[in-house]
Design a protein around this nucleic acid. Structure first.
Lengths: 173, 173
DNA sequence: AGAAACATGTAATCGGTTACATGATTAT
DNA sequence: ATAATCATGTAACCGATTACATGTTTCT
């Protein structure tokens, strides 16, 4: 993943971490400093990256990584390896399976904040859409928008199914 | 999660594992024997489950677990704890970000098999829809259908965006 | 004949996060 | 003042998977 990001532009470990926090990438990949820094060291030792130090005032030196030719080749080879299946885990959906054990107000709150979360993700993607996005990234971002919108729509149109289950409990609350 | 499944019906560890492999649950939760068996032992030791042995011919005895009253209470309490955010990781989407580094035939194959996978998931959910599904599970299954269909639709309508990137390479192949 | 399903459990391993260590600069 | 951002790196820890251990029955 570091190789892929550095294919587009050179960057420091810190900047790579920031890139993982931006939409749409943040939606389907993540990495912490604890995995990024060692990875950059290993890739550099293997000759897939080159590193140059930019001394800084006060802060630690900034290490700017750049992909090498053999790094480019290794990345292309990696892209051709069979892709691992998606991994998805959702506590929200699990809880919804047991909506009948919850008060209506809880279910309502959960769905409201989930819709708000999807809307925030959509806004974040839309605000990045015009800028420095590659075609591939635009394609991926577009799929994100499509599924988030479908999810919101479903939740709005079918929430009564689970809000009705524990219906009476919260009427007076 | 074991508590939740055992809330609906008593089962053995083996049967719980099978339940995690069935749609729609398999789409957003998973667990291996290596975590299920120890979990059942711990929950039993804590008094949240009761276990009865059914001796069997040849095979090891089947241990059938049943949720206790305090198990029910603990599960309700757990449902009320704040839900962890969804975790999603997709190598497919990452690879698509770099579609311009791939031959067109590769991209086409990847998208084709992804659509086939979504269709299989939809079929699996639909075939379980009528049977012994709780209302909450039906709601969750419905959301699965909605987003899978939206994803297929997006892929079909926009695949040309990434198939065009490396376009010429595979024309004669 | 061989594979898959049935059935439980432990130990080794692994990928990855969190916490720690350090410290100046800038925004609120 | 206080929090957040910038900046790198290591060590401890943790949840969970995979492999191992064992053995019968049923399906292909």
């Amino acid at each position: 993943m570091c190789l892929g990001l550095l294919l587009r532009q050179e960057a420091s470990g810190y900047e790579i971490k920031k890139a993982f926090e931006e939409r749409p990438l943040a939606a389907f990949q993540d990495a912490s400093y604890g995995s990024i820094y060692p990875a950059l060291s290993r890739l550099t030792a293997a000759g897939l990256l080159a590193c140059r130090d930019r001394p800084q005032d006060g802060r630690p030196d900034k290490k700017i990584y750049r992909i090498t030719q053999s790094g480019r080749e290794a990345f292309r080879a990696a892209l051709h390896r069979p892709v691992a299946p998606d991994k998805y885990r959702s506590d929200f959906l699990f809880v919804m399976m047991f909506a009948d054990c919850l008060d209506r107000s809880i279910v309502t709150g959960l769905i409201d904040s989930r819709i708000a979360d999807y809307r925030a993700r959509i806004r974040a993607i839309e605000s990045n859409f015009e800028s420095n996005m590659s075609d591939g990234m635009r394609f991926v971002a577009g799929q994100g928008l499509a599924v988030y919108r479908a999810a919101i729509r479903y939740l709005e149109e079918h929430r009564h199914l689970v809000e009705g289950l524990a219906a009476q409990k919260a009427i007076g609350a």
